[in-house]
Design a protein around this nucleic acid. Structure first.
Lengths: 205, 205
DNA sequence: CAGTTACGCTACGACCCGTAGCGAAAGCGC
DNA sequence: GCGCTTTCGCTACGGGTCGTAGCGTAACTG
């Protein structure tokens, strides 16, 4: 969120307004998409003055990041018994979130903006990307406990491998969904997982 | 381009103006980025009236796609002797194009817009994406001639595999560059290629 | 109650959009 | 050469969004 240090005195900021604004932002993203979304319209939908919106967020970019970030909270890594099943499960979850119209149009737009805005990039990293990356680390740790993956000797190499896996998995799903515009269905996920696990097995030999 | 059927009579459209506009668009992307780029500014930079710009392109999206598309013309697939070397070469080329400031800020922006604009998505596909995908098909055909990959029995499965490889490769490079904001250097490409080839080998067994 | 902060509302200049209208320029067929 | 057609540069315009300033009111604290 926007990390406003709450002062001890004075009228407190309405928490209900916060949620109403974020909800209105998601609704506006569904109806209008990124480019036609205006802050005035969001304020009207939320039943809030436009000035209130500007008091809490610096601009459209930051607002949309916060509005979309909560959708990634539902990402979990339930234990499905094997590394392959775990991967397939989390990839399907990620694809489902990315298939929503509000994330589809918003995510790549804010990433594009972040190429010229370092603070925005940091905000995206902490509130969205790191939540995804955590799943990769958890999945590997679980696979090591199962004995499906060897415990890495060099932790530095292990970190690089985790980053590689993350970029490959997240990138592939995003590219399939947004660029190729084809569905990430169970069949595709199965083939992708087979490719990924095969590559991991070959690399650790 | 914008596929304007040239009429036999009347004053012909200036081809020099076309190139000046696209060049000005790329320069404006470098200076201003996607969101702050305005068509009026592009027209001024190109030494062209704003109305001329609107006569040739429907809007900002289409213009930027055309301006960036030509940068992907330099993508080639020189024979480096092995499938691994071919992959590493083309991935490094793709990463180099994507590292330019004009493509970095523009590509994801137009992809984000294309989620709500089917004609734009088709334009991106034909003028940018298909040029990349072609390299995957050529690379595989070459590897089959070398005997590095088995000739697929089912052409339908082969097409699906090619699509998968394409989404994985392009997606990984894009994600690494734009989301993780870390360099696609020779070391990363080597590790990615090893992962991909290992997965391919495991899948064809 | 006084002090402080957030809120809703209005109004404002600045900017960009996309289009219309005009006269001039550059080709083609005769 | 002379019309015809299309594009060009230019100006001007209504409409929309931006981000901010100002002001009176509401909410909470000590």
């Amino acid at each position: 969120m926007q990390s406003h240090t709450p002062s001890r005195t004075g009228r407190p900021r309405s928490a209900a307004a916060d949620e109403a604004i974020l909800e209105a932002t998601r609704a506006a993203l569904v109806d209008l998409g990124w480019s036609k979304l205006t802050l005035g319209d969001v304020a009207t939908r939320a039943g809030v003055a436009k000035t209130t919106l500007y008091r809490r967020w610096a601009g459209k970019n930051e607002l949309v990041v916060d509005a979309v970030a909560v959708l990634f909270d539902e990402l979990e890594l339930p234990d499905r018994g094997s590394l392959a099943a775990d991967i397939e499960g989390v990839v399907l979850q990620f694809a489902a979130i990315l298939d929503r119209p509000e994330t589809k149009t918003a995510l790549m737009a804010v990433v594009a903006e972040s190429t010229r805005d370092a603070p925005l990039r940091e905000r995206i990293r902490t509130s969205i990307v790191d939540r995804q990356k955590r799943l990769v680390l958890e999945g590997r740790a679980r696979a090591e406990r199962r004995g499906e993956l060897p415990v890495p000797a060099d932790p530095c190499v292990a970190a690089e491998t985790a980053d590689l896996i993350f970029d490959v998995a997240a990138g592939a799903v995003v590219h399939r969904t947004l660029v190729s515009a084809e569905p990430v269905d169970a069949d595709w996920v199965r083939r992708f997982t087979a490719l990924l696990l095969g590559g991991l097995a070959a690399a650790s030999e």
